[in-house]
């Protein structure tokens, strides 16, 4: 009996991974890799994969936070602004000559604080998250520009570049993916996020502390935006006030393509990862095929429409 139960668990967790949403997009990604690899010389190479991994990392990490927010039935338009705020305001520490072990925690703390402000306002004001984060996006970005006066921080000490070398960004991305895949699937936190996104009233009636969990989700999103900022600084070697511009919409695109329902309550971190990979592969493939990379937007748009059409069909079937 026990054995059987154990076996069922394995099978059912395999089902959890492959059955529902991620399976189709996983197949698309594989097919796309196969097609590009067979038609483009040098596509299937470590060098190219490194390039792709570096390309998708920054928005990828932000998208993980966005996934949690959307799963809980919310929205976060301020991710790009938080990223920029964290590295620019935190980056003033570099200007002052603070050591890296103070600057990094400082930047991450800024991300957490800004995320908390979002969460606080959303849970207290009864205003849709879309509007609150549209407002805070303006505020955070405005403060960044006012304080930095639009000036780049460059050059920066080379220790800050370490985090951006080779596969290191991707290692961070992988760690974030691992932690939040685990957190969403295996912890109380995860269950409650799904519950809140699925039916907030029901969750409340079931005794879930809705406000607390919603606030935590925005804090995580803020933290991950700041983390993504650190890596961006590492990769580029300077701090730019306009950093993270447009990340919010790109992150939403990755989440939606990854099969997470924009109404909340269903989806996965893994799906978002596959969504990001897909966008990265398409961009790399088109670049190598010498197709004008401007067409990437077209493909992204079509993919989004395709993904939400699937989602709404699934929704209607219920």
């Amino acid at each position: 009996m026990n054995d059987l139960a154990g076996k069922n668990t394995i099978i059912s967790s395999l089902r959890d991974v492959f059955k529902v949403r991620e399976a189709p997009i996983f197949i698309y990604v594989i097919v796309m890799i196969a097609v590009f690899s067979s038609t483009i010389d040098g596509f299937f190479s470590m060098k190219n994969f490194e390039i792709i991994s570096r390309q998708i990392t920054t928005i990828g990490i932000v998208s993980v936070g966005m996934t949690l927010v959307i799963l809980s039935g919310g929205f976060d338009l301020s991710v790009g602004a938080i990223l920029s705020f964290a590295i620019n305001i935190g980056g003033q520490g570099i200007v002052f000559g603070w050591p890296i072990w103070i600057v990094y925690p400082f930047m991450l703390a800024l991300g957490i604080i800004l995320g908390w402000i979002n969460g606080f306002l959303i849970t207290r004001l009864a205003v849709p998250a879309l509007i609150i984060t549209l407002g805070t996006m303006n505020i955070y970005r405005g403060i960044t520009m006012v304080i930095t006066k639009g000036v780049y921080i460059t050059p920066i000490p080379s220790v800050y570049s370490f985090i951006g070398r080779g596969y290191i960004p991707f290692l961070f991305y992988a760690a974030v993916l691992g932690i939040f895949t685990f957190a969403t699937l295996k912890t109380r936190f995860g269950r409650n996020i799904f519950a809140i996104g699925g039916a907030e009233e029901s969750a409340l009636y079931s005794g879930v502390p809705v406000r607390r969990y919603k606030t935590i989700v925005y804090i995580i999103s803020g933290f991950l935006s700041a983390l993504s900022g650190l890596i961006l600084v590492g990769k580029s070697g300077f701090v730019q006030p306009q950093a993270g511009l447009g990340y919010e919409l790109n992150a939403i695109a990755a989440v939606v393509i990854g099969g997470t329902s924009i109404f909340g309550g269903s989806g996965s971190v893994l799906g978002t990862f596959l969504g990001s990979v897909m966008l990265g592969i398409i961009l790399a493939g088109l670049t190598m095929l010498a197709v004008n990379p401007y067409w990437q937007g077209l493909i992204t748009g079509v993919l989004i429409v395709f993904a939400i059409t699937l989602d709404s069909l699934r929704y209607l079937k219920r």
Binding site: R191, N192, F194, A195, G198, A199, S202, A203, S206, G207, V208, P209, G265, S266, R318
Partner: peptide
């Protein structure tokens, strides 16, 4: 009940 969750998850929700 939250339709997306399993029976056990619903029973212990919150």
């Amino acid at each position: 009940v939250i339709k997306e969750l399993s029976v056990a998850e619903n029973i212990f929700l919150g």
